[in-house]
């Protein structure tokens, strides 16, 4: 039988990250995480890697919940869930939590899952690769790409670098006849 102290420690250390991880798929991530922790307590022995075990159970439970939800209910809950904060507001920079949540929503699902599991879940690249079913190098590449995109989305300088230098529309001097003439004029 698993001791209650183990569950308390796992809840305190990994509970918020598990909720954030389940929030990528499920509209009710708290229920998924709670069911995963209860399922852990039903086990006869503590798994060899309880953190990775919990992330896998949460992932399976969240995906299964999404499949069971109807489309109409999903639309309603998405609207309700979008108002809930993904991160705790920092007293130093209250806008940072909102920006991070917004940037995470815009990430591709594979990169977002890898960043959440690695950055907030504290999993190693080996655990992330086993969790997502890819190689370690693929997991590392997704993590780096996700961080790069998040940085571009969150830091103003990066945003400005993505924007064009002049806001005025560029009007060609003469109508474009064909591609050969464009290349010749550019050259």
């Amino acid at each position: 039988m698993i001791e209650s102290e183990v569950l308390t420690r796992l809840f305190d250390e990994r509970g918020p990250a598990l909720v954030l991880y389940a929030r990528q798929w499920s509209d009710w991530p708290e229920d998924v995480v709670q069911e995963a922790l209860i399922q852990l307590m039903r086990q006869r022995r503590l798994p060899a890697d309880p953190v990775a075990w919990l992330f896998r159970v949460v992932r399976n439970g969240a995906i299964s919940q999404v499949r069971q939800q109807s489309r109409r209910r999903r639309r309603e809950t998405v609207t309700a869930e979008s108002r809930r904060p993904w991160f705790c507001e920092s007293p130093d920079d209250p806008l940072m939590a909102e920006e991070a949540a917004e940037a995470l929503r815009r990430l591709p699902p594979e990169e977002r899952e890898t960043v959440v599991a690695r950055l907030w879940g504290g999993l190693s690249f080996g655990q992330v690769s086993r969790l997502t079913g890819v190689s370690i190098s693929t997991a590392h590449r997704r993590y780096e790409a996700g961080l790069t995109l998040l940085r571009k989305l969150m830091i103003p300088e990066e945003r400005e670098a993505q924007l064009p230098t002049s806001t005025e529309p560029r009007v060609p001097d003469k109508p474009v006849q064909d591609y050969d003439s464009i290349e010749a004029s550019d050259g």
Partner: peptide, 13 residues
């Protein structure tokens, strides 16, 4: 940037 993001704590909802 990674360290800056890690400082943001997820919400327990």
């Amino acid at each position: 940037f990674e360290a800056q993001l890690a400082a943001i704590l997820p919400s327990t909802g």
